[in-house]
Simulated scan of single mutants.
Amino acid sequence: MNRSGQQVLRMLALVPYLQGNEGVPVAEVAREFGVTPAQIRADLRLLMFTGVGEYAGELIDVDLGALDADDVVYIRDAEFMQRPLRLTPAEGIALIVALRTLRDSATGAQLAIVDSALAKLESAVGGEVEAPVGVHLDEDDESIRATIVDATAAGRRLRLEYVGAARDERTVREVDPRRVFVEQGRRYLEAWCLRARDLRFFRFDRVVSAQATGESVEDRAVAPRALGDGLFTVGDDAASAVLDLDPAAHWLIEYYPVDELAAPEPGDGRRRVRLFASDLDWIRRLVLRNAGTVHVVEPSSLREDVALWARSALAAYDDDDPITQE
């Protein structure tokens, strides 16, 4: 879901939450919704243009004096949002799927809240659902996940050891977490990277270690950004290679930036792609790691390089002298 859609859903939840928590500090609201205080302030200013009409008393009113002077939130004229929410079966199932996805990224007290909401939804929708709804997410380390989620909720800086997708390099960097979300079956952390001095996205399954530093995150005014903006960007200087993928290697299409080309032999199960990366050395390592299922079509220099490395590796097993083998 894009940023605009997420903001709409958050604002729909904000109103009843604020109605039941008058005078709540902005920082507490931000922690509750997993965003920055600056984002909550932006949401509140947008809420002031929302209502059942266009005149005073018909629009939601936010006490800007209390917001600016005391950093607390009071809202008025939002009683129209107290009507009971009625869901269609399809809407209920969609919420169940969303909550089960959220549950896989929750820890501690959050689990109890999600489980309680799930139980109520499943009870209400259960008669309309013929089969259980399952959600599959890529595996990642449970302890790392808990550290990231807890630090994000508490507004604490993280030190990550991370393996990048473009260069396959392991780096250590400190980040200020902003939110945790799921995209296409994978968990991501959106954070301000102190090393890059910019917003970045970190895939959970590429995080080798995570540690909270104890420092509070800095509240930065960062323009909204889509997921793809924080990942490897295919620019004019990007390296590329044409590869034939056996069925066992089709997962690469979803995992790395590629352009899919016409199949070499229709019906044989292979798929031809142009794969992009920061350099050809990284592509060579990728092909060797998936030997037998990924085949280099072009450039010829890469195909020859892969063959040379493969022969060198096989030669190491041809030495019959166990003393000299390493």
Score class of each variant (00 low, 15 high):
residue 9 L to K: 03
residue 19 Q to G: 06
residue 21 N to A: 04
residue 22 E to P: 07
residue 23 G to D: 11
residue 23 G to N: 11
residue 29 V to F: 13
residue 31 R to C: 06
residue 40 I to D: 00
residue 43 D to Y: 11
residue 44 L to R: 12
residue 46 L to M: 14
residue 50 T to W: 14
residue 52 V to H: 15
residue 58 E to T: 09
residue 61 D to K: 03
residue 64 L to D: 08
residue 64 L to E: 07
residue 65 G to Y: 07
residue 72 V to N: 01
residue 73 V to K: 13
residue 76 R to M: 01
residue 87 L to T: 07
residue 88 T to M: 03
residue 89 P to A: 05
residue 90 A to C: 07
residue 97 V to Y: 06
residue 101 T to W: 12
residue 101 T to N: 07
residue 102 L to R: 07
residue 106 A to D: 06
residue 107 T to M: 08
residue 112 A to M: 03
residue 119 A to T: 06
residue 122 E to G: 03
residue 128 E to L: 07
residue 129 V to P: 10
residue 132 P to R: 02
residue 134 G to L: 14
residue 136 H to C: 14
residue 138 D to H: 05
residue 142 E to P: 14
residue 150 D to N: 09
residue 152 T to D: 02
residue 160 L to E: 03
residue 161 E to A: 04
residue 166 A to H: 02
residue 167 R to Y: 02
residue 173 R to L: 04
residue 174 E to V: 02
residue 177 P to R: 13
residue 179 R to Q: 10
residue 183 E to A: 14
residue 183 E to P: 07
residue 183 E to F: 13
residue 186 R to K: 05
residue 190 E to D: 15
residue 192 W to Y: 12
residue 193 C to M: 03
residue 196 A to N: 00
residue 197 R to E: 12
residue 200 R to C: 02
residue 202 F to S: 09
residue 202 F to N: 03
residue 205 D to I: 05
residue 210 A to M: 01
residue 212 A to N: 11
residue 217 V to T: 09
residue 219 D to W: 05
residue 222 V to I: 02
residue 224 P to Y: 07
residue 228 G to P: 13
residue 236 D to F: 13
residue 237 D to H: 12
residue 239 A to L: 09
residue 239 A to D: 11
residue 240 S to E: 11
residue 242 V to M: 08
residue 246 D to Y: 09
residue 251 W to Y: 10
residue 256 Y to A: 01
residue 257 P to Y: 04
residue 259 D to N: 03
residue 261 L to D: 00
residue 262 A to N: 14
residue 264 P to N: 15
residue 267 G to S: 10
residue 269 G to T: 04
residue 270 R to M: 00
residue 277 A to T: 00
residue 283 I to W: 08
residue 285 R to F: 15
residue 286 L to G: 00
residue 287 V to K: 06
residue 289 R to F: 06
residue 292 G to A: 07
residue 295 H to K: 11
residue 296 V to Y: 15
residue 297 V to R: 08
residue 299 P to G: 04
residue 309 W to D: 04
residue 310 A to R: 02
residue 318 D to V: 12
residue 319 D to I: 10
residue 323 I to Y: 01
residue 324 T to Y: 03
